[in-house]
């Protein structure tokens, strides 16, 4: 691996994400602010990667570009072999539906759906019959210790429970790439640890990968790599428990 976050040699054959020279700016003319300034990044299958850095360093923007939610200004982003920027808007939507899972800092659960219905939403979107979708969501929630809270509405759930429902929602359609934005930011330390352990368990699957944007240094130990971003560029990288290079 080199200092720009690229994988090399044998690692390269397993990559799920490959970003090269990605740039992204917001605003126009004098108010134009470059947020990503030529980012290169690889994520291999079976890898749990933490994307860290100060606020405004471009972590979330990079995550959005990888997800096809934001359009990069320049560069190439390939996810599961697909060049994201070359897909049409509807193809991007379908790509996200079929291959990506998301966990958001604010959970964004639908307040009028029960826990199991919230977890089943990606399957509803895919057109899976309601009974089957709910059964699959129920199975996942049970493995997360939410078997007693299946019918609870989000406002009645604690922060940790809501995040577990959000994780179940992200995993229910068995996505190959899981994108997480500050998944522990609203949780206490113990709950945060438990949640990250569960996420990392998913990432260890040989056909999957997890990218976690976080400020929470207490959870770095769970990742395979920690990529530090600064001022729109990939800076230091730490492999496993080692030091940043």
């Amino acid at each position: 691996m080199n200092q720009t976050g690229e994988l090399s040699g044998q690692e390269r054959s397993h990559w799920l994400v490959r970003a090269r020279g990605v740039t992204k700016s917001f605003g126009e003319g004098d108010t134009k602010i470059p947020v990503l300034k030529g980012v290169d990044l690889d994520v291999a299958s079976g890898e749990v990667l933490f994307l860290v850095g100060p606020s405004g360093s471009g972590k979330t923007t990079l995550l959005s570009v990888i997800a096809g939610i934001l359009e990069s200004d320049d560069g190439d982003v390939r996810v599961l072999g697909e060049s994201i920027q070359e897909l049409s808007a509807s193809a991007k939507t379908n790509f996200r539906r079929d291959h990506l899972g998301f966990i958001f800092q604010q959970y964004n659960l639908l307040p009028t759906l029960t826990a199991v219905e919230n977890a089943a939403v990606p399957l509803f979107i895919q057109g899976v019959p309601k009974v089957e979708a709910k059964a699959r969501a129920e199975d996942i929630l049970k493995t997360m210790g939410m078997g007693e809270r299946l019918m609870a509405l989000p406002p009645k759930l604690s922060g940790g429970e809501q995040q577990r429902v959000a994780i179940a929602r992200a995993l229910v359609a068995e996505p190959q790439l899981l994108l997480c934005d500050e998944p522990t930011a609203s949780l206490d330390g113990e709950t945060g640890h438990r949640i990250v352990e569960q996420l990392c368990g998913v990432g260890k699957h040989p056909d999957r990968a997890v990218i976690i944007v976080t400020h929470d240094s207490r959870i770095f130990e769970f990742g395979d790599r920690v990529v530090h971003m600064e001022d729109g560029r990939v800076g230091q990288i730490r492999q496993g428990q080692g030091d940043f290079i």
Binding site: S90, T93, F102, L109, L110, V121, P122, I125
Partner: peptide
């Protein structure tokens, strides 16, 4: 009031048509 939830649905893969 549900903008974030709709945004989440869009991110997850719900099309504008849906």
């Amino acid at each position: 009031e549900n903008l974030r939830q709709f945004g989440a649905l869009k991110a997850i893969g719900a099309s504008t048509g849906m």
